[in-house]
Design a protein around this nucleic acid. Structure first.
Lengths: 105, 105
DNA sequence: CCGCTCCGTAAGTCATCACTTACGGTAAGC
DNA sequence: GCTTACCGTAAGTGATGACTTACGGAGCGG
């Protein structure tokens, strides 16, 4: 149930976000991803492991290669977390604005 | 270098998430936040600076203290980013499922 | 004015992490 | 069977970051 690495730790790295965004265009193999990135292929493999542990991507073997794609599961968890604090932040913002008005008046 | 701190870098740290979640209950001062956390008060100040640079919290001086609260601005940016990839991940997931069915049959 | 509380910042330490090269294991083509 | 391409992992290194203590500035009450 609980993933080894949370989604924010996974997406905090710019290189991992670049991989993540590239996978949004469609499934890609490891070497194909590494070819367009300024890091080595093993580095991409390590990043993909982190993204996989966070539930953000999933992989499947296709012949000789290993194809990765986005996984809605981890993404949904992040969305749920943000939505939980979204309305709360709006309420706090409104209340702060009202209190600020009271102080001014 | 720590150029513009993005929201994921800010929320990747567990201590910062704890601060962030505590602020969801309402505005709090720095010492009040530090009192319930296993880190020192200066550490909380540094974390609040990161959260503020990411646009996730805002602060205002109240007498002698400095009160922090959630800021919808940074939170909205994170939500927008996730929503942009949410449907894409669902599409990729569906297509993968269809292709998997074809392979089985 | 003085002491107290609150807070941010500077400097230093220690762990974590992103990256590299090197290696072993597996599938496809000849 | 042999070579080639693709991939994951191990080991080592340099840099980033999270934390500490120490210090200085600002508001409040005596």
């Amino acid at each position: 149930m609980t993933y080894g690495a949370d989604g924010w730790t996974a997406l905090s790295d710019p290189t991992r976000r670049a991989i993540f965004e590239r996978l949004a265009d469609g499934p890609r193999a490891v070497g194909e991803l590494a070819r367009g990135l300024p890091v080595s292929r093993p580095a991409v493999s390590q990043h993909l492991k982190v993204l996989k542990d966070a539930g953000l991507v999933s992989d499947r073997p296709v012949g000789n290669r290993r194809v990765y794609q986005l996984n809605p599961e981890g993404l949904g968890a992040l969305r749920a977390y943000l939505d939980r604090f979204w309305t709360l932040s709006l309420d706090a913002f409104k209340q702060a604005a009202e209190q600020s008005n009271k102080e001014v008046s």
